[in-house]
Design a protein around this nucleic acid. Structure first.
Length: 354
DNA sequence: CGTGTTTGACCAGCGC
DNA sequence: GCGCTGGTCAAACACG
């Protein structure tokens, strides 16, 4: 009996150490990402100054294309792609790799750098960035899950403020507002799927202006980076240009679940299809999510990747409100991309507010 | 009586 | 301009 207790205690200690190590890894990845984000911002500012200079020069001298002006955006895109290639070469220099841990950092940076570089190429002008931010503020997260209940448990308090019959669906659409804090702008729509009434489609819009329940907060920290990758990864097409009308699907092999990111609608929508997981209708494929995330990497040894994502997965799947956490993570990620007027940047930094 | 839900009315955006 | 549709408002209502 005492022996069993010792074993359990040892196991508990081991798990604690494991959690601590994972926390540190996540914090490190987050710091790297933020540092890279700052670097990209400074690059964007430099470029915008250079663009102004080039524009002045172009106006002064005749162009070399027989009088036909090349649209500036195309020129900028070509330039940006070149810069992106340079970044890639720098980071992938094998001489600079010191350890698996270091590789992991580099890989995260590569992924983030590629995404950021490509994103930069899409928004060569400041006005485009502002437009994109305005659009992202309207980004929505849609979750499809099998549920008999009228609403999935997402750990938030909601007040119903309307119900409508939508065209093409015999089931009514319900409108809810978050009531966990005064003036919280988050809304959600709940509607049963027309094709399969057992599927509940919940669409979230906006960012919470308050802290989430403690259980969700810690998970938000851990999953936000992965969710960020889910969103930022497919945002770029192979030629480095973002299509104005794209639809990207990420298939999670272990559970047959699918995440769809669509910008074909007026505002980008992330759709998480949780209806195809055979065991638990609300189970999210965290392991595969992290395999898609910055925790994996282009060059990371497969063993380390699998081991790491499995560990994180084990921690995450212990949470009963995983769907809520996932949604919170994605809305957090969107919130980080464009902090709102209420100084959410500070809040986002501590991960308490999404 | 306070809180949350229901439901018809109203409004804005969009396509024709 | 008109009609359709989606989203929101607010008075009436239900419930504990």
């Amino acid at each position: 009996m005492i022996f069993q207790l010792d074993v359990l205690q040892a196991e508990l200690e081991r798990k604690k150490a494991e959690n601590h190590r994972l926390r540190n890894m996540f914090d490190e990845a987050k710091m790297n990402y933020e540092a890279l984000q700052m670097h990209m911002l400074s690059l964007m500012q430099e470029r915008s100054v250079e663009d102004c200079k080039e524009e002045e020069q172009e106006e002064e001298k005749p162009n070399g294309n027989g009088g036909v002006l090349i649209p500036r955006q195309i020129v900028d895109l070509a330039k940006d792609n070149e810069e992106g290639s340079k970044d890639e070469e720098l980071v992938f220099d094998p001489d600079k790799e010191e350890s698996d841990h270091e590789n992991e950092r580099n890989d995260s940076q590569v992924l983030a750098a590629n995404n950021n570089t490509n994103n930069v190429s899409n928004f060569s002008a400041q006005t485009n960035v502002e437009e994109a931010e305005a659009t992202m503020k309207k980004a929505k997260v849609s979750v499809r899950a099998r549920s008999e209940a009228n609403m999935i448990n997402d750990a938030c308090q909601w007040r119903k403020y309307g119900q409508k019959m939508a065209k093409g669906n015999p089931f009514p659409r319900a409108y809810y507002r978050c009531t966990m804090a005064l003036n919280c702008p988050v809304k959600k729509q709940v509607q049963r799927c027309a094709e399969d009434k057992s599927i509940l489609v919940t669409t979230y819009e906006g960012n919470h202006n308050h802290a989430l329940p403690p259980a969700a907060m810690e998970m938000v920290k851990q999953t936000s980076a992965a969710a960020r990758m889910l969103l930022s990864g497919p945002m770029t097409s192979p030629d480095g240009l973002m299509n104005s009308n794209f639809l990207t699907r990420t298939v999670f092999p272990s559970s047959s679940s699918i995440a769809t990111i669509s910008a074909s609608a007026p505002f980008p929508t992330i759709t998480l299809d949780l209806t195809q997981s055979p065991n638990n209708p609300l189970q999210f494929p965290t392991q595969t999510l992290f395999n898609q995330s910055g925790f994996s990497g282009l060059q990371m040894s497969q063993d380390a990747e699998t081991s790491q994502s499995q560990q994180i997965s084990q921690n995450l799947t212990a949470d009963p409100d995983l769907t809520a956490v996932l949604v919170a993570a994605i809305t957090y990620m969107i919130g980080v991309a464009q902090p709102n007027d209420n100084d959410t940047k500070t809040n986002n930094n501590n991960g308490n507010v999404i």
